[in-house]
Design a protein around this nucleic acid. Structure first.
Length: 542
DNA sequence: TCGTCTGTTGTGCCT
DNA sequence: AAGGCACAACAGACG
């Protein structure tokens, strides 16, 4: 703790925005604006996040698809506008965030630095550099936890130093979250001298070197706190819907009016405070009386978010199979061809492909749609590593969130939390039960739009005359299925059963040395199974 | 929390 | 008035 002896140092404060791109319920901002003469609101544009990467599989940077970059820029534009209304503005700089912030701290003679605590490994490493620098120069640092309902450290502490691994145990530890701040600002302290640092205005996506992007379909969801609060009001208007919300009952094929709130991208960037959202929901529950409960209710969804944040924070290598103590070790297979077919929406299963196209175009898909394609890629059909799928989601989703995305891939692939590996989503009947006419498929896969509904989920079974009439020949205009679901899912179940029963599924190659003989044996079985599956697939293609 | 398939039972409506 | 029919809701097997 730095003593408040140096009034010159005290007078300059920096609020460093990363997530938490909002004014409302922003503890870091609130702490920053107190008792300072000059307030410097900073955001650092990271070239790795923004600049085009030609080697990536979709338009975007090394770290993000175009839709999420767009969402971030919109959020920054909105934040800047809000700050300007309060007599301030967003100071935008470009470069690697930590060194840039350190330079600014020094050049602007900052006495106090505030930023929202970030629990992700990337954020922790980034912030450590800045904290070390600050402590070296006697700069006070405040980093309140406000991205989640609870402080993951508190929950882990209450649980004896280990993160709770079930939702119910998490709930038992959590209690009620703290109330959001309700302070309304009319004016923030002014910005001081900024010297010769180049301050940018929020770039347009065209300014980032993406050339002609008019061909890319952009997400229908706009970023920013203003948009978030408007959407929240819209969602909460229908109190009966809010009170009766049950997550598993949503319709994944609804896209004109999605079955969930689609507030996740705003939570991801902190355009919407999760504590404020919680409070608003709680008020509705109180006024309505009868309402659904966790885990299925809307509040239950916020708690799921905190659950995954907590486990992710307390689990080393949470985003990997190897070295991850809570992750089953499963001999996933390598198959680039099948993986690329999945990623690019060319599996030949219209339900799967339509979802992957919506993901690419919108940057958002329904929760159960995520389940469908994740199951298909991993334990359901292709038996490909969940990390490969995780990477695709992480890039394309506008709401992609490190803890939640990894948590759900662990869940869906039966690698952690959930192990009912024989519960496999059918790539044919699951979608059909919600959307028998196939409107969702027709919309996202227009090549199939004239297929009769009898065949639209399994177009390869349509007689050639039907294919001709629909102007879409399977194998030419739309791919044949890459696997036979009956056979592939049976193989997967067999392999999952063996993998989960095997003691090696618990052995963690980085922690414990598996005996070399058992490893060899496992590898042998693995390649044998892949070979036999390939033969079967070839047979089915005919 | 969030599977699929099949078979049974119950319901509403028609003739 | 009883039988036929379609369909929803549910239960159990499967793995």
């Amino acid at each position: 703790m730095i003593v408040n002896s140096n009034s010159i140092m005290e007078s300059n404060t920096m609020i460093w925005f990363r997530k938490g791109l909002r004014i409302h319920d922003n503890p870091a901002l609130d702490q920053a604006r107190r008792g300072c003469k000059h307030l410097y609101p900073v955001f650092v544009l990271d070239p790795h996040y923004l600049d085009p990467d030609q080697t990536a599989f979709s338009p975007g940077s090394a770290r993000s698809g175009l839709n999420r970059i767009q969402f971030l820029l919109e959020s920054l534009r909105d934040l800047d506008a809000s700050l300007r209304r309060l007599g301030s503005r967003l100071l935008l700089l470009r470069g690697e965030p930590s060194p840039v912030v350190c330079r600014l701290l020094k050049d602007w003679k900052i006495g106090k630095l505030c930023f929202e605590f970030d629990t992700e490994p990337y954020g922790l490493a980034r912030d450590k550099q800045v904290k070390d620098f600050a402590s070296k120069y006697g700069i006070e640092v405040q980093s309140p936890v406000s991205h989640t309902l609870f402080n993951p450290s508190d929950i882990i502490g209450k649980n004896g130093g280990r993160p709770p691994l079930t939702y119910q145990s998490f709930i038992a530890l959590a209690g009620r979250p703290v109330d959001p701040l309700t302070t309304m600002y009319s004016l923030l302290p002014p910005i001081g001298e900024t010297g010769d640092h180049e301050l940018l205005s929020v770039p347009k996506i065209e300014d980032l070197g993406y050339g002609d992007i008019s061909q890319e379909a952009f997400s229908p969801f706009r970023g920013g706190e203003t948009e978030a609060l408007n959407k929240l009001d819209q969602v909460l208007e229908d109190k009966a819907w809010v009170a009766q919300f049950e997550k598993p009952k949503g319709n994944p094929s609804a896209f004109l009016k999605p079955a969930t709130t689609v507030l996740s991208p705003y939570l991801k960037f902190g355009c919407l405070s999760t504590r404020y959202f919680y409070k608003r929901l709680d008020d509705i529950y109180t006024s309505v009386g009868k309402h659904t409960k966790p885990p299925v209710s809307l509040v239950g969804q916020l708690l799921w978010r905190d659950f995954f944040y907590t486990v992710a924070f307390g689990t080393p290598n949470f985003d990997r199979m190897k070295g991850n103590k809570i992750c089953k070790q499963i001999p996933w297979r390598e198959n680039e061809e099948l993986f690329v077919a999945w990623r690019d929406g060319r599996t030949g299963f219209p339900w799967i492909d339509a979802i992957m196209i919506q993901l690419k175009k919108w940057g958002w898909i329904h929760h159960l749609a995520r389940h469908s394609v994740a199951c298909f890629l991993t334990r359901g059909d292709l038996f490909i590593h969940w990390e490969k799928g995780r990477d695709v989601f992480e890039r394309l989703l506008i709401d992609s969130d490190w803890a939640i995305n990894n948590g759900n891939w662990l869940w869906l692939s039966c690698s952690s939390f959930f192990y009912q590996y024989f519960r496999i989503y059918s790539p044919i009947s699951f979608g059909k039960k919600y959307d028998p006419n196939g409107n969702y498929i027709r919309h996202f896969l227009p090549v199939l739009k004239d297929f009769p509904k009898e065949y639209i989920y399994e177009p390869w079974t349509a007689p050639l005359s039907v294919q001709k009439k629909a102007n879409c020949i399977i194998g030419e205009d739309y791919p044949k299925p890459v696997v036979n679901h009956e056979i592939a899912s049976k193989e997967c179940k067999k392999k999952m059963g063996e993998a989960l029963a095997s003691p090696t599924s618990k052995i963690n190659p980085l922690d414990q040395k598996a005996s070399s003989s058992s490893r060899k044996k496992q590898h042998h079985n693995d390649s044998h199974e892949v070979a036999s599956l390939k033969i079967k697939q070839r047979k089915n293609m005919k």
